[in-house]
């Protein structure tokens, strides 16, 4: 039995009602890429998601269609998912640090008191 549709173009295709016995094979939908976009020149590129593509050029074309068809975007990067190295959430403690880190901040260095004291003492000379 072939499909009878209210859309004549579908009826004309003579589609079979029976499911296909040959499932598609692994990688028929290609490799995965991660996509980064830049919404404005001067901004950082930001990760927006991933997609499937056979090569980097196609990944760029598909990334434009998928992630930049509506909102402002001036530049896209695509990177093979396989080429990204990331830290592990299980190792979150690598970001833990001593609570007191004023020695590496600008606010940790105050000199005016010493300068004023020095000026005052010098006046006295």
């Amino acid at each position: 039995m072939s499909i009878k549709s209210i859309d004549p173009r579908i009826t004309r295709e003579n589609l079979s009602e029976e499911p296909d016995q040959n499932p598609i094979k692994e990688l028929n939908h290609w490799q995965t890429y991660e996509v980064f976009h830049q919404t404005k020149k001067g901004d950082h590129h930001i990760h927006v998601g991933s997609l499937h593509a056979p090569n980097a050029e196609m990944a760029l074309i598909l990334a434009k269609e998928q992630y930049a068809r509506r909102y402002e975007c001036v530049n896209i990067w695509v990177v093979k998912s396989a080429n990204i190295f990331s830290s592990d959430y299980d190792d979150e403690d690598i970001f833990e640090t001593t609570p007191e880190k004023m020695y590496r901040e600008a606010g940790g260095y105050k000199v005016m008191e010493k300068i004023n004291k020095y000026k005052k003492e010098r006046k006295g000379v």
């Binding site: 990688l27 290609w30 490799q31 995965t32 991660e34 056979p54 196609m58 998912s81 396989a82």
Partner: peptide, 20 residues
């Protein structure tokens, strides 16, 4: 579409799970 996708497929590729 199968033959188009197969024509572009590279034999030496391996699937990677997308990151996020």
């Amino acid at each position: 579409g199968e033959w188009v996708r197969r024509a572009l497929q590279r034999k030496d590729e391996r699937y990677t799970v997308p990151l996020a």
